[in-house]
Design a protein around this nucleic acid. Structure first.
Lengths: 194, 194, 194, 194
DNA sequence: TTATAATCGAGACGGTACGTCACGTCTTAGT
DNA sequence: ACTAAGACGTGACGTACCGTCTCGATTATAA
């Protein structure tokens, strides 16, 4: 006996299924920007997607799965390195990328998810964090190898500091960081203060 | 003329009321550590406090109010400046204080609240942020005046960067920052990297 | 120790108490006409009377008591017999009196109370019914003795029939009985139909 | 074009739904006989029916709807005319029918509802009244046409008087009318008294 | 005149029920 | 067969009154 109650035992691949997947994705984004992650309800997504609630549950068994589906394209933006020629250029480019992503509803949702500590979100958060930090790591590592940064530089910590400073700017200040704000962060971290 | 015949006014101060307030506070803390802010239900707090739900709503009309009541003592810890004699000492002391507070359930709840973007929490988050940052501001400002830091130092940004780096360490890494971790953050920000 | 918890052990007679009693009565009437007996809340009466809820409970321990206090004057109107000289005159007068009383909020409340079957209202309803029917009894008995009605007349049943026909006219028809309506009732009951 | 792609519309008719409807009906009757209409709580009905509260609200959005569902079978008993051959026979049969219906909890509830004047009950009360009176109208009208009653008889008023006399007997007397009581009412109304 | 007892208001309490919302699952019906 | 519509149990929401109690303050009666 093999899970007799499982509603969908094989996954459909027909055009109808594709259509469902796309409209749910779009509806999820719309709802995220309307109410935020905490206020996201499957009911609303289903209605906005013109789809029934059970249909959503069949493919995305949790809100985490729904979020993951929608956040994936954002994470992919961190896989291509900027390569502007200078550390500051590379890092600034990454910081601007983060700013843009955080401004999108699914990006904001990720940050919310990061702090709620819900178990089902743990893996997603870990992955997303690692993937973003990796871009910083690579940029910093390159700079060290090019001699732009001291070999003693604490790459992981600098990456963490820059990343969180940008991500949390808007929650703390009420508006996203301007270009000068990003430069100030970079300067504060990279230049001698003592 | 202010209603001269009004027999009493203001809130109750009898021992019973005090008892209610205290047990709700305790129960809120217990629930926060059990389920986190997102999973906090008034029902559970009421039951844990041995109090009826309407009683809670009478005094704390929203979850935000409940959180505020429980977070206040934490915020007060930032009002006393460390004064260890050196910038690094002062800042490290503040960072350790933050680490301790974030480790407490109500501190963690505040961070969650900061990113959910719920309207009713906005004021609370603003206040808490400002109060914490102010402590960093004072420490940095003192250092500038003592000549420990360059007068060109970007005090607000440095404060922001240090604060968020400590606060977000645990969500990003899965465990709180150790003493060396805090030192590394401080070093990364305050010492020349270029 | 003599009932230490009884709130009111003796009765005050000062002008303040009188004032309280009167304003509660008035407020009860106002609320009855606003919401009817079923929707009557002590809260609303207290607020309308400018009095605290416990104050009401001190004097009128139940809604029934409140209703009784307010209905008493109505019942007294049935104690004086009309004595117009003819059965039809007397009966019509009584029926008009009932119509008037039923139109008042407290009269309407009594009828509501009669059918709810609440235990606490039982006595009040019994008394009110008896007192009203007694007036019909006396009028009919007089008529029998004067020879206006056959000695075989079933006085109690006729009284009941006339009383209920008037009382229930408005609930059944949506508007109170006009003078001709009352005459038609009287005619239908007193004149041969067969 | 009426939404051609709509797979289903209208309510469910499966055995489970039927089962739910039936047990709620039964539970409503049980609760009505336990506490009367005024004391009827949805909570209690739900519990007695082994059904959740939202389920009840889904199908019966108000207490009035619940009452209507349960009272309908009673009203249908008035649609079949007695036809005993004589006015007195027909009317007595109707009066006995009313007595039986009033004795049932849902019948009693209807009478309570008739006098509370709640807006949501207004329509239900009107309908029920009309349907019961119609049976009397038909019986009386037949009698007039057969010559048993004078053509001058005030059919609507006689119907009203008889109906209310039976219905209100129990609230006024504390026990239902016996067979002789019904005869006395009929005699008092149909025979000359003057 | 002053105690002392009665009463008052305001406010709060534990309860019970309300009517609603969203959840995640299961049933029924249509295509 | 798969799906959509619909219904279901569950659990929480925030609110309304209930009837009671405590607390000071205010009156009224009696010493």
């Amino acid at each position: 006996m093999t899970e007799p109650n499982r509603p969908t035992r094989g996954i459909q691949r027909g055009p109808r299924s594709i259509q469902v997947i796309e409209s749910v994705r779009a509806a999820t984004l719309a709802e995220l920007s309307r109410t935020g992650f905490a206020g996201l309800t499957i009911d609303a997504v289903a209605k906005a997607a013109g789809v029934s609630r059970p249909t959503i549950y069949r493919r995305w068994p949790s809100k985490a799965a729904l979020l993951q589906a929608v956040v994936e394209p954002l994470l992919e933006t961190y896989d291509a390195d900027p390569d502007t020629g200078s550390v500051t250029g590379d890092l600034l480019a990454l910081m601007m990328l983060i700013r843009e992503n955080v401004a999108r509803p699914e990006g904001h949702a990720m940050i919310t998810a990061a702090t709620t500590g819900a178990t089902e979100l743990r893996d997603l958060v870990r992955t997303a964090n690692a993937r973003t930090l990796a871009a910083f790591h690579r940029a910093l590592q390159n700079a060290v190898e090019r001699g732009e940064l001291s070999p003693a530089s604490d790459v992981p910590v600098i990456a963490h500091v820059l990343f969180q400073a940008v991500v949390m700017w808007e929650p703390a200040h009420g508006n996203p960081p301007s270009d000068p704000d990003l430069s100030r962060i970079l300067t504060a971290v990279l230049t001698p203060t003592a």
